[in-house]
């Protein structure tokens, strides 16, 4: 029982990373209407930047806010410069652009920092705490809290600020939003920026446990895609819940289902994507959409 509980808890802490990445993917999807295949690579890039900043001697109190700002500018810049030109060309071109971004940013990271796996010291120290029968590392607690904070902030922005209202308006109905005087272009860029910032936090938190390499978020991307599919592409909350579920599910599966260990954990998100699309394509929290000719 204790073991099951421990596995669930550690599944939740890894699930938070997938949840944040899934939230980022959902944000881009709601605004631009495409999956951003490069979301994981953006997070990897952010993790490497934070690694470079910390080796340069900056304090983590400074690095985290700086990273969020940098990621926001980067995400918004990518949208303005590279995604904007194909915005009207349909989903195929958009998806291909994000595939190109994946290839490109993966190559850039590998060219600058090499392909070896580096260990990155946890920003939260190496302490271990015991609560009853359960064990927590400082990294799990601090990382979890940081991701939660990022997601909460993102949720608050969307729910309670005028900016959030505009962002939601553009996501719901771009044409009406434009008629109301909202600059849809700026809002899409802001959406990409917020997504990149949330993803950057996910990358920062994932790096100490997974080891820093250009492949840092490759698996996480797949898990996050599964999370968004499970939660529903049209729901931000769904993406987060989906991420937590996927985290717990893949952790439990790799512990209790014989044969699914290590790398093969990825069978879980694949199975989830396959089944959800087959059974309930709108996801748990999504709305089924009707299409009019």
């Amino acid at each position: 029982m204790t073991e099951l509980l421990q596995q669930t808890v550690s599944g939740l802490t890894t699930g938070l990373v997938y949840a944040a990445l899934a939230l980022a993917i959902a944000l881009v999807f709601q605004g631009t209407g495409t999956l951003n295949f490069a979301q994981g690579e953006f997070a990897t890039l952010a993790a490497f930047v934070s690694f470079a900043l910390s080796t340069a001697g900056l304090s983590w109190w400074l690095i985290v806010p700086l990273l969020v700002v940098l990621a926001f500018v980067f995400g918004a810049g990518v949208e303005r410069l590279l995604v904007r030109p194909v915005e009207g060309s349909g989903p195929l071109a958009l998806l291909t652009v994000t595939a190109a971004l994946l290839l490109g940013s993966n190559a850039v990271v590998a060219l600058i920092w090499g392909t070896d796996v580096r260990s990155m010291a946890s920003p939260f120290g190496g302490a271990v705490y015991h609560v009853g029968p359960l064990t927590f590392t400082a990294q799990a607690i601090g990382g979890g809290a940081l991701v939660l904070l990022a997601m909460l902030l993102c949720g608050l922005i969307f729910r309670f600020t005028p900016l959030g209202l505009r962002l939601r308006a553009v996501a719901d109905n771009p044409d009406s939003a434009r008629l109301l005087g909202i600059s849809t272009g700026v809002m899409l860029a802001v959406g990409w920026g917020i997504a990149a910032a949330v993803g950057a936090v996910a990358g920062l938190v994932a790096a100490p446990t997974l080891g820093l390499s250009p492949e840092l978020m490759t698996n996480a991307l797949l898990l996050a895609l599964a999370a968004v599919t499970l939660g529903g592409f049209s729901s931000r909350l769904g993406a987060v819940v989906g991420g937590l579920l996927i985290g717990v599910l893949s952790n439990l599966a790799s512990r209790y289902v014989p044969g699914i260990g290590g790398d093969l954990q990825l069978v879980v998100p694949f199975a989830v994507i396959f089944l959800v699309l087959l059974v309930r394509p709108q996801g748990l929290f999504g709305r089924a959409s009707t299409v009019r000719a």
Partner: peptide, 24 residues
């Protein structure tokens, strides 16, 4: 098969998952 349920990006979603899982 599953990509038929909703059109659009699902084939992209599914195929990139397969691309990632195949070498494993």
């Amino acid at each position: 098969l599953p990509a038929l349920r909703v059109r659009g990006l699902n084939l992209g979603l599914l195929t990139i998952a397969i691309a990632a899982i195949f070498p494993l």
